[in-house]
Design a protein around this nucleic acid. Structure first.
Lengths: 159, 159
DNA sequence: ACGGTTGGTTCGGTGAATGAACTATCCTGG
DNA sequence: CCAGGATAGTTCATTCACCGAACCAACCGT
């Protein structure tokens, strides 16, 4: 676990990875959604790319995109179990987001096993939907607004 | 996930919690096994106790013990999935430790479901055994040596 | 050609982490 | 009863990481 924490244990790293699962791919979107200092974001993205957790692909012009690699996708159980623990102990209204299997509507657990059909669900086949604890503030930025809608995981935000 | 990381996302916190699962309970043992600065250890233990992840109970005299609470035990999926990710991507020799269901010998996944009997295995009913990647250095301190033996999780080290 | 967008870099200030040394309390052996 | 060790810290100077704000350079559409 020491090596895992050397890669994803620094501050912000897991939040960047979580946002990547949610479909965020661009520098500016990570910056505005997370509120992370840009210098720190630069450093974290470069490090995660160098460790093959994210891949940096050129979009149009300067619009680079940071995407999860296979190794990065393997972090889903970490993201999911941390979220479940936070929901269980710090979300009296219930979770802000729930994740469902697009094919059958069941709820995959942290290991991606679906509660209804029993399949191991690929992350891309999961839908993220607002849960009972979701708060929709009127002044929400476009990114937060998009992430409060029902949408598939990994699908790029505003393509 | 933000709130979860506020509790367990600081450096050393998850390693302290992992060691607590392994059976470490005393200040000196955490210090020597993790190599964490003592001032930081003091602060982390106090914080985790204040957040009801650990409980501090008086042993004999000054020998306090830090034990996982129910809330702390709920962090097992986080510890397990981080370890699995590290093993999958940074342990070419295979994992250093494997965890088995004491009753049936199966291997519980991150959600504690046993691969053999299908039961949800309590953490206390799991055995930690050395795996193919375990390295037994001759100069190992007594704590590391104890943790390289087959032993139940949560059982206090040298009671 | 020009203003906006994107993806950064640079900078000074602040707080946290580090390792080494020191301390106070309790327990045990003689 | 006293000495010494074990335990669980505290203190301190140095180093390092994080922070917010400002600056900058390439590219785009018009």
């Amino acid at each position: 676990m020491v090596r895992a924490l050397e890669i994803v244990g620094e501050r912000w790293s897991l939040l960047i990875i979580r946002d990547a699962f949610f479909g965020i791919r661009r520098f500016t979107d990570f910056s505005s959604h997370l509120g992370i200092p840009r210098a720190v974001l630069t450093e974290r993205l470069e490090f995660l790319v160098s460790e093959d957790v994210l891949a940096r692909t050129p979009g149009s012009g300067r619009r680079f995109e940071y995407e999860l690699t296979a190794k990065g996708l393997d972090l889903w159980p970490v993201v999911r179990s941390l979220t479940e623990w936070g929901d269980a102990h710090y979300a009296p209204q219930g979770p802000r987001r729930v994740f469902t299997h697009a094919d059958c509507g069941g709820q995959p657990d942290a290991t991606r096993r679906c509660s209804r059909c029993g399949e191991t669900v690929p992350v891309a086949a999961m839908l993220m939907e607002p849960g009972p604890g979701m708060v929709t503030s009127p002044k929400a930025d476009p990114i937060s607004a998009a992430l409060a809608e029902r949408r598939p995981l990994l699908q790029p935000v505003e393509p």
